[in-house]
Every structure is written in C-alpha cells, then in structure tokens.
Amino acid sequence: MILETRGIGKTFGSVLALRDVSMGVAAGQVVCVLGDNGAGKSTLIKILAGVHQHDAGALLVDGAEVRFSSPRDALDRGIATVYQDLAMIPLMSVWRNFFLGSEPTKGLAFDVAKARRVAREELRAMGIDIRDVDQPVGTLSGGERQSVAIARAVHFGARVLILDEPTSALGVKQAGVVLRYIARARDRGLGVVFITHNPHHAYPVGDRFLLLNRGTSMGEYAKADITPQALTALMAGGAELEELAHELKRQ
C-alpha cells in the first residue's frame, strides 16, 4: 500500500464529518470512493491531500505513519490531487498551465521551447488529443481540462492521484474520456483514488470500492465481491429507492 488510512476520523466543531474509515490504495490500483451528498467523501480526500488534518486514527504513506502539514507536503510525497475547479488558469495556454509552479529553466530563462515540447509529448503519451498546446485552457472542454490536469500530475512524478468528482459535471462522452485517462494513469503504475457518486462511472474502472454513508464506512469491496447492481443499490440505499419509485408513480 502506498497510501493507507486506519480508523481515520475528522470533526468540524460539533459536526462529525468522518468516523472510523479504513482504506488503502496500492500502485496500479483504482480505489473508488462512493457515497451520497455529505457522506464525507471530500473530507476524506482532503485529509489524504493534506488540506485537512485528521483528528482520530492514522494516516500512512509506505507503511509509515505521517501527518501532512500542507498540500505541498502531500505533493512532495507524490500525492497529487486534481480538483474540479481549482486546477487551471483559463486565460493561460495549455503549456503554461502544464508547467505552472514547476517551470523548466535554461539559465535564467523559462525554457519555453522545452515546456511546449514536453507538454505536447506528455499529453500525447497519455493519449490526450489536444492539437494545439498554445490554446488557452479556457477554450478546452471540461473533460479535456481534467485530462490535462491528470497528465500534469503524472508528469510531475505523482505516485497517487486523487480525483474529486472529475466526472460529475461532464456529459457521457466526456466522462468516458476522463475514465480512459484514469485507466491510463493506473496502467503507468499510479495508485488512483477516484471520488464519485455515480456507480456507473466507478464500476468499469475501479478495483476496489469504498462506500461512505453519513461519515462512516459501509465497507470496502473488491470488484469480484460485488455486482454493479449491488453497488448501485448499496449507494442509493436500495429500499429508499424503491420507496421513491413508489412515491413517484402516477396515481
């Protein structure tokens, strides 16, 4: 396991956001974190990303207990997070965004030629079809933007990639594009933590599934142990869904 939590918990004042959650992600593995709104998914990954500090349980990197002091701290240990909105500067070109904060230099200068070339190569290696690295990121579609952020994390040596609902705002086709890059990152040996509340996105790409409900774990399942139907039912709280169907039925 690269990254692991044991009985981790977090409270905000009197709000118990997360309680006793254990999970782990290994190299070349995709762990999906599923749960309804307010289940604690974002809280969990913010602990993994160094945004929040846990106040119960343990966080381990390569088997050793750690406590991240900042997102930079997590990043330095190879844990990269891609947020839905907080990823890029819309008016800047793809290559400028790609190297932002870690610009390659040649003497005093920003090695612009290298930045362009490497950005193009890295995107191509991930199979991302962006034809012009000079175009402003704001002109990319949501899925392309997520893909560039993923390629960026891979290039800068991330070992674990955390994605907070990368597909939630995307159409079916765009979501498929992002799922493909998640698989590609996995194939390159990264551990991926993929947060979503859509079991149809999670099931095809996931190896393990962590289900959260009201801040607690409802279990972690390997793909072999659960069917897509069971996953959906667990997520929605099967009984509640049937009740809803009944309620919505025409009188």
Partner: peptide, 25 residues
C-alpha cells in the same frame, strides 16, 4: 513576461490566484 518563470507567475496570480497558489506559485 514571456520568457521567465516570474512571467508565468504574473499571468497566473492575475488569472486565478487560488489555483496558482495550489500549484506552488
């Protein structure tokens, strides 16, 4: 502006300061 690290940072802090800070600018 066009050929230095600082130039990249200037565009970034003006474009989206939060995002710039998140990647270490």
């Amino acid at each position: 502006l066009m050929r230095s690290k600082a130039g990249n940072w200037i565009f970034a802090v003006g474009g989206n300061e939060q995002a710039a800070r998140a990647v270490g600018v």
